[in-house]
Design a protein around this nucleic acid. Structure first.
Ligand SMILES: [Mn+2]
Ligand SMILES: [Mn+2]
Ligand SMILES: [Zn+2]
Ligand SMILES: [Zn+2]
Lengths: 154, 154
DNA sequence: GTGTCAGCCGCAACTCGTTGCAATAGCAAA
DNA sequence: TTTGCTATTGCAACGAGTTGCGGCTGACAC
């Protein structure tokens, strides 16, 4: 007897947020399609950050017929569900945070080209400053701050 | 007797940094072309921010034959001279700061779509935090920070 | 004024993303 | 299982930006 693939509560270990994706999509009157399944399969084997371009390539490995517009539209949908969250690299290109539990911003060094995550303590200073001075509620995760790292200026 | 158009020191009031552009370009072994002249004319009648797209449109008003790639390449050149400085809007698109004397970053509200400049006091907090905690020398002007303004969250 | 030559221009092709549209196909109800 | 509604797909076209290349032209030397 085959397991209903959309339901993760069949045993004891329903761990991944991806397990609920199909049901959550259908619950909204939306459809669980092969294209969406493919993207979710790709996403669940990665963590951290990915560019949309890389996701498209990985989907195409599994399904040659993958189309960019469909991937972008599905990413929008998954972002509405909170399963991914996009930001922009230093050059404005999209990057996706997968399962953004600990949301964070990025730092980019124009000298050496490296990127770092902004640590929570540092983020807090920025967020607090904008909140207290302007009442502005920052979404740092959407942003990459450019500059020069300690090793690259002097 | 015609005034040498490239020199602004003929009388007393040599005010605009644009006046020196032609000479500075030629001094580097580069060329002062009609296309570059057109863009500089467009830039000198604007201040604050502009998108590259708008600059292309304004150039085309003066010269129908204006080509995007030439404008982008000239903007790169002017950026090397410090006459403009590009940043990225909330969606990653390019924006140019004209004559960036008081460099500043931007704040974008995803609720109402408004954009504000980050005031120097606020910028200082951000810059200082990254400098003291990480030795990172921030270029805030390249960045638009997203979030929700005081009027849009609650 | 003429010649030289490196810098620049315009073009075409490409990347990343978005959007309108007609055809397809989930999915739920019968 | 079949029907029917509508969400979704793939396509094609577009907008923003970048890049390689052959031909043109500024700037300068004579
Ligand atoms: Mn940039
Ligand atoms: Mn964005
Ligand atoms: Zn560095
Ligand atoms: Zn707002």
């Amino acid at each position: 007897m085959p397991q209903p693939e959309t339901n993760a509560s069949a045993g004891e270990a329903a761990v991944s947020p991806w397990d609920g994706a199909a049901d959550r999509i259908r619950a909204g009157g939306l459809r669980w399609t092969p294209q969406r399944r493919t993207l979710v399969e790709v996403l669940r084997e990665r963590e951290g950050h990915v560019t949309a371009t890389e996701l498209i390539a990985r989907c195409r490995e599994r399904d040659q017929t993958t189309t960019p517009s469909t991937v972008y539209r599905t990413l929008d949908l998954l972002e509405d569900l909170g399963l991914v969250k996009h930001g922009h690299g230093h050059d404005g290109r999209e990057e996706y945070h997968i399962l953004p539990q600990q949301v964070h911003g990025h730092l980019y060094c124009v000298g050496c080209g490296m990127t770092w995550e902004i640590r929570p303590e540092t983020a807090a200073v920025i967020v607090d400053a904008l909140a207290s001075q302007l009442g502005f509620d920052v979404d740092l995760s959407h942003v990459t701050i450019s500059g020069r790292c300690a090793g690259c200026h002097g």
